[in-house]
Design a protein around this nucleic acid. Structure first.
Lengths: 117, 117
DNA sequence: CCCAATAGTTTCTTTTTGGGTACTACCCCA
DNA sequence: TGGGGTAGTACCCAAAAAGAAACTATTGGG
């Protein structure tokens, strides 16, 4: 199971790769999840870790991750407000994949700097 | 190395996850690579395996994958034309990651069908 | 002579994604 | 009284991604 699709198995069989990429693709989601792998973070901490993200984008992406059951959002009724984001069990199950994406991407970046420099 | 970034390591250190997702993100690239993991395919074969893809999108995505050194494009000077796409060594190094994305996505799809049905 | 098949390109349009700016509410603190 | 920190919303706009449709070249086959 979950193997490369064979010649005659390509019918209406949902592609797991497509499903995953719909959930963690886009400019911010993968990176958000990766930071939350490390530890629970509040909104402003996450924001500081994502150079260039706007409040709107961060909120939006977090809401979608929450909707997709990858991230927990916990609001503390304090002043100033505190909202903490953490991975759900399902989100945590992505950790090995994120780890691989991270190390592959770093290796790529190191080996292929020349193309962009 | 390639671990979850620690509190005081978050400076200008490129995020591998972001690099990877830039390369394999989008609606088609991951799936294209996944099919090419299995075997070399010509344009029309790939097209049939990607329900809904237009010629334009497929060409465009393949050109980008080629530019990023993940895919080889070999043109045979025949009539009718034949162009074969295969993974480069670098592309092949993504196989474990794609495998994980695939099985994670399939599991997600099976467990969370209820939300969309 | 016309059609089919392959691997595209071109142009136009729509949809999705991302981003800028301003605004809110709450309370503490000086 | 007013500024700062937190976690947002609302509204509008630009850019990028995706898609639809029509067009090209080539040559073998009927």
């Amino acid at each position: 199971m979950t193997s490369v699709p064979t010649e005659n198995e390509t019918r209406q069989h949902i592609c797991g790769v497509a499903v995953s990429l719909e959930l963690i693709g886009g400019k911010w989601k993968g990176v958000i999840l990766w930071h939350l792998c490390h530890k629970t973070l509040r909104f402003s901490q996450l924001r500081r870790r994502l150079p260039g993200v706007t409040q709107k984008m961060l909120t939006q992406q977090l809401r979608e991750l929450e909707r997709d059951n990858l991230v927990n959002r916990v609001v503390y009724a304090e002043v100033p407000p505190r909202v903490e984001y953490s991975l759900t069990t399902l989100g945590r199950s992505l950790e090995p994949t994120l780890r691989q994406l991270c190390s592959w991407g770093q290796a790529y970046h190191e080996d292929y700097r020349e193309t962009s420099e």
